[in-house]
C-alpha cells in the first residue's frame, strides 16, 4: 500500500482536480500533519511535474491541470495550515502593466505560481501603477509580478516600482518582472528583485524570493 503522500503526488501529477482535495481531506481525517501533507504530498508532486515539463515529458495544459488540482488541494488545506501555525508559501499580485494588453504571458506565469502553492491575485492587463499600489495595500502580498510585452510599456514597470516606493510599500514586497523584451539587466536597472524568462522560471523565482527554494 502506498502512503497517502505518495498517492497525493500521483494525483497531482495526473492533474486530478477531484481526487486531490478528497485525498487531502482523508489525510487530515487520519490525523496527518497539515504541513506534511503539503510538503510530502502536494509539493513533491508539483516538483515532479516541473521536472517532467523541463524534460519535455509534460505539456503546458497538463502542467496547468496539475497546478489547478494543487490549488484545489490547498483550498482544503489552507485553514488547517493557518491553524497549525505553518507558514504559507505566499501571495502574489500579478498584472500586465499600463498600456499593455498582452495577457496570456501573465496568465501562464500566474498559473505556474499557483502550481507552486502561491495564492494568486490577478489584476488583469493594462494595470495602472496606482492599482498595483492599492492591491498591495488591500491584499498584502509577498510578491508583485509584472508583465510587459512591449518595449514601449517596459518603462511602465519602472513607474510602477516608483509608485510603490512613493507609497512607502517597497520594502513590504518583492517585485518580479518578465515579458518578451524584458531581460535581467533591465530588471536590475528599474530596481526589481528578479526576472524570469518563462513561466516555470517565474515560479522558481517566486519561490526563491520568499525563501522557499
Amino acid at each position: 500500500m502506498s502512503t497517502i503522500y505518495e498517492r497525493l503526488s500521483t494525483v497531482i501529477i495526473e492533474g486530478n482536480e477531484e481526487k486531490v482535495p478528497k485525498l487531502v481531506q482523508k489525510g487530515l481525517d487520519e490525523g496527518l500533519v497539515p504541513k506534511d501533507i503539503l510538503d510530502k504530498g502536494l509539493i513533491v508532486g508539483m516538483n515532479e511535474v516541473g521536472a517532467r515539463f523541463k524534460r519535455g515529458d509534460m505539456f503546458v495544459p497538463e502542467v496547468l491541470m496539475s497546478a489547478k488540482s494543487m490549488q484545489a488541494g490547498l483550498e482544503v488545506l489552507r485553514p488547517h495550515l493557518i491553524a497549525s501555525g505553518a507558514k504559507l508559501i505566499g501571495k502574489i499580485v500579478m498584472g500586465t502593466v499600463k498600456g499593455d494588453l498582452h495577457d496570456i504571458c501573465k496568465n501562464l506565469v500566474g498559473m505556474m505560481c499557483e502550481g507552486a502553492g502561491f495564492e494568486l491575485i490577478d489584476l488583469g492587463f493594462n494595470v495602472e501603477p496606482e492599482k498595483f499600489v492599492e492591491a498591495i495595500k488591500e491584499y498584502q502580498p509577498d510578491i508583485v509580478g509584472m508583465s510587459a510585452l512591449l518595449t514601449t510599456t517596459m518603462r511602465a514597470m519602472g513607474y510602477t516600482i516608483k509608485a510603490i516606493e512613493e507609497a512607502g510599500l517597497r520594502d513590504k514586497v518583492k517585485i518580479m518582472v518578465g515579458g518578451a523584451p524584458v531581460d535581467a539587466e533591465f530588471a536590475e536597472r528599474i530596481g526589481a528583485d528578479g526576472y524570469g524568462s518563462n513561466a516555470p522560471s517565474g515560479a522558481e523565482l517566486a519561490k526563491r524570493l520568499v525563501g522557499a527554494a
Binding site: F53, G56, F59, V60, P61, I104, L108, N198, A199
Partner: peptide
C-alpha cells in the same frame, strides 16, 4: 489574422 499555435512546451 496571424494564426498559429501556442507551443505547449516552449510557450
Amino acid at each position: 489574422g496571424v494564426l498559429s499555435v501556442l507551443d505547449m512546451n516552449s510557450m
